[in-house]
Design a binder for these strands. Sequence first.
RNA 1: GUGCCCGUAGCUCAACCGGAUAGAGCACUGCCCUUCUAAGGCAGGGGUUACAGGUUCGAUUCCUGUCGGGCACACCA
Length: 555
Amino acid sequence: MSAVLNFKSHLAHLFAEALRVVAPEAEVAILIERPKQASHGDYACNLAMQLAKPLRQSPRNIAQALIAALPASDVIQKVEIAGAGFINVFITTAAKQAVVKTVLQAESEYGRGKVGAGRKVQVEFVSANPTGPLHIGHGRGAAVGDCLCNVLAASGWDVTREFYYNDAGAQIDNLRSSVQLRCQGITPDDPSWPENGYRGDYIADVARSYMAQETVEADDQHITGKGDVHDDEAIRHFAVAYLRREQDQDLRAFRVGFDVFSLESALYSEGKVAATVENLIASGHTYEQDDALWLRTTDFGDDKDRVMRKTDGGFTYFVPDVAYHLDKWQRGFTRVINEQGADHHSTITRVRAGLQALNVGIPKGWPDYVLHQMVTVLRNGQEVKISKRAGSYVTLRDLIDEVGCDATRYFLAARSPDSQLVFDIDLATSKSNENPVYYIQYAHARIQTVLKQCEPLVFGDANVGLLDSEEEKAVLQQLIDYPEVVETAAHDLAPHLIAFYLKDLAADFHRYYNATRFLVDDEAIKLARLSLCAATAQVIHNGLGLLGVNAPDTM
RNA sequence: GUGCCCGUAGCUCAACCGGAUAGAGCACUGCCCUUCUAAGGCAGGGGUUACAGGUUCGAUUCCUGUCGGGCACACCA
């Protein structure tokens, strides 16, 4: 039996052959697509319409010639010309049925591809400042970033997940002074509370813990509170460790892990910031003005030059950022993707400009960025304003506790990062049935229940040729599509495509389930149907795995 | 004012980097459980794809402009 399952690329090759015969000179892209309507076949090619102009012939005539030149293939049942000149291809049912055995043999490997070819890619995401708990915006970054990593890994990339801590700036000093004031019993409603001090209750928790001389564990370090109200350095050290621990715990509860944690403070202590500044000066793209050092970012597409070293001698934040990205490059990551909130988009130009100015062979558009738009939270039909300073926000921890990890991850990852997201807490909790994640998980659970009643099952003997109802063909086609969906999600850096796909697969399965009885007397039919069920469950399992969502056996 | 993202059914979103009659869910109406999980399925109504032009065989998709929403435009991070 022919093992061709990637019909799209198979057909593309066939049409390329036909094109060489019909119009060897033509330079057109061969595009095979899935028609929306079943009557238009399984796959369609628009080559004839594209060739109409250069060949000065009618599309239908060209289509006729292309079909005549199309090499034979045992997966093609028939080819038709339709509409203005579409070439519609129908795949034999037998070729589609083969997917069942392929899935059952490959198991969790089904859908994994080799496009990445083992190349290294580093994905930086979350990268929250250690100045407070993770909020829902970080949650979106965590969900999107983690799924993106999973999808890239499934496409054959060697993925490194990295978290960058801005632990060395003005906001850290802010944190320190806020904690210090709390240690002294001063609260945010006191008139002496600084304008930009952190007001959240968690600051009081940090202060209490510090004064009680508790020990926190973060990043393999044990830090014990000194209890000394006047030791700035000890307070800063403890507060950062305390909040990092909180973030680590939240991320673990969200099932997100990292391979590497990078610290901004380390870039300073290891001299990487100083070295980067020296190299930028040596590059000739800097100048002194008004007692400050400027980088001529306008040489690289920025709309104005940027200060590197302030009049007070400190560096602006993007200088360590450039040093950090140079470090990524020197670690051998020719591909880097930064997943961030859209409120950081102005940094892109500056970081890239700094890297270009260094002139060390870094490509112009490096690194890549995936920016997710802002998340609005609705509670009781009202928007919850997120403000870290005012201390009002919805934490990731709240969401995990109230909504659950599965639903939260799905909700936050199931939308294009380019779109703003409205997270309605009441909808996600009180009416959790409406959440599509349950719809998908339910399909998986239903299958497991059915399979459990017939164990042990040996699908090797299953006659998949018996699967030819409309509902069965729809499910088969979905299973065939899965590897391509994974590949597209990785290529487009669009993990939400997995979520949409799973919803469609679940819908086709539920339709099949309602229309068909599996546990029938005819053993051959029963085994064939159960093999399709098992293959469907496998793909749901694999897809949900990419989203970091569980595939439960019972609900 | 400048840059980036978005605008599709009453609501939340799709439409495979230009394709054929723009699709789901929620909500609304009516059906389907003595048999595998009804957290499910079937049927019905609901649209000038914000607006106006342009590009071409063909536009929700690309280009220009207008309107509307969000984000960012520091010697803050």
